[in-house]
Write a protein that binds this DNA or RNA. Structure first.
Length: 582
RNA sequence: GCGCCCGUAGCUCAGUAGGAUAGAGCACAGGAUUCCUAAUCCUGGGGUCGCAGGUUCGAAUCCUGCCGGGCGCACCA
């Protein structure tokens, strides 16, 4: 067990023994233990006394004093001080920190892993872009965010499915098919197709049309729409999904499962959902007011088939069928989420763009209704990427063909830069994005700062091969004894920092906030670079000291532990931990 | 009109289940390399945490109102 955990459990036990917990109902993980910001405040601090005092309506200092005595009895605690309004500052023995190093090295790739997820099934649905064209920069953020959330959840013990919902039904697919057919005709010099405003002008359709021409020649010319529409849409979808998969592969993203909207219609899943809703008495024929401030506001409302989403916290009940008696998109989406529930997931996570925020309540309502309040749906909204070109904002649109593709972007800067960049902001804040700037800035991207720290450590390992130091990171290092001289303040800061890595992972996982990992890695790299450079003035603290081999091996062991944490962190966010720069 | 998100240093942003002196990067000014990689480090200036109230030992963080920006409000997907 790691040190932070040990202390949480220790305090938790004391609280229970004192019956403090009767009113507060805490779990060990709820006890927040932080690295003290100043050495005056010891190594670790907790505000638990103040939290408890509030609930128990007693004085924080009394609670703190009570805890102090008992925490002090523990072997790895040197002493405990009460400060300010009731902070408990814990001073840890240096041996306890040294022990953490062994703990980290023994855990290796598993350092920070946990079983908190309890093998529960989680479905993370992300990207889910319409199969009408290649991915563009607007999709990148959600793609990276979803991927990393999934990685983190897996790391803390959930069984995760990475899923993509393919909207291969509806009007946009018809337009896609017609656009492709138009391109096909053009290849034969025919341009008598009537203009339609939702034409997809991207050049990728010309490529696909050429393929069809090579394969089938003029077979599809001069036929009524009903003869070719399905063939052309199916052809386009399968080709474009291949393009999308390739785009995602450039960012090292691979989904486990692709769910096709069309399968819902084919298997009459929507009717099944309606039946379920009828059984639950959640459907009725009714009238909802038209939206205000819209072109429909003056229309007379008609009776429609409605789902009682208001009962589950939505603002209004939602229609399931259109006037022509076909299903709404929402009806299909309900069926889709019902399918997820059916597949046995304990938790659902959807990653959406901010433009879909208004849709959250109704889908959450649907999941609550269909799972009978058993399954939680967490919708992560990531804000849009505000695009600019040469400093001027511009709007992208697939239909106008005016967009920067993901492909172009990866080509220019590489996957590591993009993945890191997409995570340096929490998802709710909009990112401003200028391709030109992004390319210029990519060489100062903070990802290199973190990778460099990792590479520097490996440069030490290369260096010592030429020196008479017995240290091989591929060998079993658990027997290496640590020198008690491993006590420089920079060293201790580093050891503390890597010791709290498991808590960082848990926080990131519990809130689905990958950017916490990114910020942590930058802080760790900063401590490391800083300590490294101290060595240029103070030769005593350099990692390699030919006079003292035990000390050198201890320091290398510490560096190895640091490299483990950096590499585990980078792996979670899908960035390569480099052993050498360039 | 209604709903959601955002407003913190010149710029881009962390910090928000209330906690100790509000942080980082970029930019700006200066400094460090006979030495384990200078893609690094060190020092410095820079803040009415949008505004105004409230809750309390304590508020950037919670509540209310307002201001400013974004997104959404269709039987479109």
């Amino acid at each position: 067990m790691n040190l932070i955990n040990k202390i949480q459990v220790l305090i938790f036990d004391i609280i229970n023994d004192n019956d403090f917990n009767k009113l507060s109902n805490l779990k060990p993980d709820d006890i927040s233990i932080e690295l003290s910001k100043s050495s005056k405040h010891g190594d670790l601090s907790t505000n638990i006394a103040m939290v408890l005092a509030k609930k128990l309506k007693t004085k924080p200092k009394d609670v703190a004093l009570n805890l102090q005595k008992q925490i002090e009895k523990t072997e790895y605690v040197n002493h405990v001080e009460i400060a300010g309004p009731g902070f408990i500052n814990i001073f840890i023995s240096i041996e306890a920190w040294h022990n953490q190093l062994s703990e980290i090295i023994n855990a290796g790739e598993d350092w920070g892993k946990s079983k908190i997820g309890n093998s529960k099934l989680v479905n993370v649905e992300y990207v889910s872009a319409n199969p009408t064209g290649p991915l563009h920069v607007g999709h990148v953020r959600g793609a990276v965010l979803g991927d990393v959330i999934a990685n983190i959840l897996e790391f803390v013990g959930f069984k995760v499915t990475k899923e993509y919902y393919v909207n291969d039904a509806g009007i946009q697919i018809k337009n896609l098919s017609k656009s492709l057919y138009k391109r096909y005709n053009e290849l034969f010099g025919i341009n008598n197709q009537e203009e339609f405003k939702d034409f997809y002008p991207g050049s990728y359709l010309i490529e696909i049309a050429k393929e069809i021409k090579n394969k089938d020649n003029s077979e599809w010319l001069n036929l009524p729409e009903s003869d070719w529409i399905d063939y052309f849409s199916n052809y386009a979808i399968s080709k474009i999904m291949q393009i999308i998969k390739n785009d995602l592969a450039l960012l090292n993203i691979k989904h486990d499962y692709f769910f096709f909207e069309s399968s819902l219609h084919e298997k009459f899943k929507i009717d099944k959902v309606l039946k379920k809703l009828i059984n639950l008495n959640l459907i009725y024929e009714g009238v909802i007011p038209p939206p205000k401030n819209s072109k429909f506001s003056n229309e007379k409302p008609e009776k429609q088939l409605l789902f009682r989403s208001e009962k589950f916290g939505d603002d209004i009940d939602r229609p399931l069928k259109k006037n022509d008696n076909s299903f709404t998109y929402f009806a299909a989406d309900m069926a889709y989420h019902y399918d997820k529930i059916d597949r046995g997931y304990n938790e659902l996570i959807n990653i959406w763009g901010a433009d879909h925020a208004g849709y959250i309540k109704r889908v959450k309502s649907a999941v609550s209704a269909l799972s009978e309040n058993k399954i939680n749906l967490d919708v992560k909204i990531c804000n849009l990427i505000k695009l600019s070109k040469d400093g001027k904002p511009f709007k992208m649109s697939k239909r106008s063909g005016n967009f920067v593709t993901l492909n172009q972007l990866v080509d220019e800067v590489g996957p590591d830069v993009i993945r890191f960049m997409m995570l340096t902001q929490k998802p709710e804040t909009p990112i401003e994005f200028d391709l030109k700037k992004a390319v210029e800035m990519s060489s100062d991207n903070p990802v290199f700062y973190v990778q460099y720290a990792h590479a520097r450590i490996y440069s030490l390992f290369r260096k010592i091969k030429d020196i008479d130091i017995d240290f091989d990171i591929d060998a079993d290092l658990s027997f290496v004894k640590l020198s008690s001289k491993l006590n420089d303040s920079g060293e201790i800061s580093l050891i503390k920092k890597i010791s709290i890595w498991p808590s960082i992972v848990l926080t990131a996982a519990s809130k689905n906030e990958p950017h916490k990992i990114v910020y942590y890695l930058q802080e760790l790299a900063n401590l490391f670079h800083s300590h490294w450079n101290q060595g240029s003035k103070n030769t005593e603290i350099r990692f390699i000291n030919l006079e003292d081999k035990l000390l050198t091996r201890s320091r290398l062991l510490m560096c190895y532990a640091i490299s483990i944490v950096i590499s585990n962190g980078l792996r979670l966010i899908g960035v390569e931990p480099l052993k050498e720069m360039y």
